[in-house]
Simulated scan of single mutants.
Amino acid sequence: MKFKIFFALLSIMFLISVDGVINFKNKIAIKPANATTKVNQSPVGRIIEADGKVFLKRHNWSEYYPVFVGTELYAKDRIKLTSQANLRAICYANWKTWNVPKNTISQTIDGCLQAKSQCIETPDGCVPFDATRGINQVAITDKIPYLISPRHTLLLPDKPLILAWNPVPDATRYSVIIKSPSEYIWETEVSENQVLYSGKIPLKTGVRYTVIIHSDTEVSSIDEESPFSKQDDLGIGFAVMSQSQQQEIIAKSEELTQKLDGEGRVLTLAEFYQQKRLNVEAIAILKSFIESGNSTSAIYQMLGEIYQQIQLPQLAKDYYLQSAKLIGVDDVGGKAEVEAALGEVYATLGSKEDAIYWLNLAYNRYEKLGESERGKELKSLVEKLN
């Protein structure tokens, strides 16, 4: 009966909508002004190898600036290489690589046919996949056992399912439940903040499952205040891919693995997994790269973007800060992106001074680049916070 009451409360909470700036217990969730970005303004590729002097100019930049591995490319971007430089990009439309010609100015759309970007149905309409990184924000507190993994993701059917959540202060026991829309699937009790699903009842494809965690401190994961369920069919939960889908994923990932290496391979596979909504797989390959002793700003930034997208701002903040420390001084565009993301994440966490600090840094860089529209958006966010 207790669980049914919680589910009733949860359904009421999901009716909360996000519009502009919302206060959740003195925390702020910001929706950027460009939430309805057109699909044709989504990235069409990413730089995966760069050697020598490589310069890029976006359609609204005032001049060319150096770019580096990890930079995403848009259809109207122009790229310039010196005779000693080499640049390789991965194209999202077909997952093929593009070697950018030397001693000439190339336009991204000439090398990467513009992808038909996936979009997500939201209250604002069909928003491009990458644009949701800035709007899927939610205020959560460390005092509840909110779900960390698997969160807002598809899962490959043949892999073990490990459930992980935020450890609650003073909690010694957790009751963990997996539920489908029609029935309870599994329940167990543990003392740690993660558990392996027994698999006694096979999970079905095409079903959204919800994980509920109750602690012995009388708080629950469904106390999380979130409008996330409105973003798409996954919500905070997860679903299992079919065997046929898994075979396609494995075949393509093996192909990418064979033709790429190093950081470029990791970034490409993580992007591929994320676009297939396999956030668990994307996070795993990025973290594995870091654990192997590799630290780059692009890897940390992508982790921050994924955690921001799945509405875990505290984790997103930590990875963005690492990215900000590692990013090169010449990467003006990259610094602007990371600083803007940090401003948005700090705002969701209720840290207004930190949010304003990072947003102002990003504003100054966008003004330097000549991106006045993006600068106006950030200035508007600062004004709302003051």
Rank of each mutant, 00 (worst) to 15 (best):
K4A: 07
I5F: 12
F7Q: 07
L9F: 15
L10H: 09
I22G: 03
K25A: 09
I28T: 09
N34V: 12
N34F: 15
T37G: 02
Q41N: 14
S42E: 13
R46L: 09
I47M: 11
K53S: 14
F55K: 10
W61G: 01
S62K: 02
E63L: 04
Y65G: 01
P66A: 03
E72L: 13
A75E: 10
K80S: 12
L81Q: 03
S83F: 14
A85I: 13
N86R: 00
N86Q: 02
A93D: 09
N94P: 00
N99V: 11
P101T: 07
T104Q: 11
Q107A: 09
T108G: 05
L113N: 09
A115F: 05
C126N: 13
R133I: 13
P145T: 11
P145S: 07
I148S: 06
I148C: 07
L154D: 02
L163R: 05
V168E: 03
Y174A: 02
W186L: 09
W186E: 10
L196V: 13
G199I: 14
I201N: 04
Y209V: 05
V211S: 06
H214V: 13
S215Q: 06
E218G: 00
D233C: 03
F238T: 02
S242P: 08
Q243W: 15
E248H: 08
I249V: 12
S253L: 05
E263R: 01
R265P: 00
L269I: 14
Q275N: 07
K276T: 01
L278S: 09
K287A: 08
S297F: 15
I299V: 15
M302S: 06
A316T: 08
Y320H: 07
K325E: 15
K325L: 14
A336V: 01
E344C: 01
L349Q: 10
K352T: 14
E353C: 03
D354G: 02
D354V: 01
I356D: 02
I356P: 00
Y357T: 13
W358Y: 15
L361K: 10
Y363V: 08
N364M: 04
L378W: 06
N386R: 09
